[in-house]
């Protein structure tokens, strides 16, 4: 499996360039981190891969999954990729889940869409997924509404939903930013563990340098729609760094001592 982004440029209808000539690639089992401040284009890159750019924005360049071009794929075909081969977890788990639908039913959605699973078979898979994301009391949680769960539990549900159809690539867009620090650590450990166990390829987007270096190996640093540095977590922690990366690094270390990364 290879996800290849090549010369990706995104412009608005008014001719503003939001993303300029971004290229990177990630292969099976890879863990890519995309880091940058708000407005750097990191989330836009994720949206472009999913084919879910806001109306009026246009992407040029190439995004290929195993050599198959996604940018020119008809919407119908793209829908078969979304959720099945590439799935996504978002920043705010409370609003990312439908408040008026039980968690179980929401997870059932992609299972029915891509796997044609319904009824008891779907229920079994839903409980299996809730177990996978280490939720307690899974029967009760499956029948709960998102607002009846804690922030951490919600994000676990969102992860279960994204992983429901065993996608090749999981894009996590600031998945821990909206959570308490302690919960943040739990979710990162879970994500780390899930990626290891399922062999899913991870694209992790965040502004938070310590968080990114904790779960990824390859790192892209972005600023104002450009890639300013392509490095590894190892090198980023040990230095030397590009001037902008150094700024991000200084900002992070000023707030908190950098935790050690779990794996090399």
């Amino acid at each position: 499996m290879t996800l290849d982004v090549h010369n990706l440029t995104i412009t608005t209808s008014t001719g503003l360039t939001l993303l300029n000539d971004v290229s990177w690639s990630v292969t099976s089992g890879g863990r890519l981190g995309i880091i940058g401040e708000s407005g750097s284009g990191k989330s836009l890159t994720a949206a472009a891969i999913m084919g879910l750019l806001p109306t009026g924005m246009r992407a040029t360049g190439r995004i290929t999954l195993d050599g198959r071009e996604l940018t020119t794929l008809p919407e119908r075909e793209l829908r078969k990729v979304r959720g099945a081969r590439i799935a996504m977890v978002f920043q705010e788990p409370l609003t990312a889940l439908d408040p008026l639908m039980t968690v179980g039913k929401q997870i059932a959605g992609p299972l029915k869409l891509h796997r044609k699973l319904t009824g008891q078979a779907a229920r079994t898979r839903i409980l299996e997924l809730l177990q996978l994301v280490a939720l307690p009391d899974i029967e009760r949680i499956a029948d709960s509404y998102p607002w009846q769960l804690s922030g951490g539990q919600r994000q676990r549900v969102a992860l279960a939903m994204a992983l429901a159809c065993e996608p090749d690539v999981l894009i996590a867009d600031e998945p821990t930013t909206a959570l308490d620090v302690t919960v943040q650590a739990e979710i990162l450990a879970l994500l780390d563990d899930l990626i290891n166990r399922t062999g899913t390829t991870l694209v992790f987007v965040s502004h938070d340098l310590p968080v990114v270096t904790r779960v990824t190996n390859d790192i892209i640093v972005m600023r104002d729609g450009h890639v300013t540095e392509h490095t590894t977590a190892q090198r980023l922690v040990n230095g030397p760094r590009e001037p902008y990366t150094q700024q991000l690094f200084d900002a992070a270390t000023r707030i908190t001592a950098l935790p050690r990364k779990a794996q090399p």
Binding site: L52, G83, T95, L97, D98, G109, L113, H114
Partner: peptide, 14 residues
């Protein structure tokens, strides 16, 4: 414009 519609679309819904 809600996030849950974006989530549903990211899972393959039109």
């Amino acid at each position: 414009q809600s996030d849950y519609i974006r989530t549903a679309r990211s899972l393959g819904y039109s």
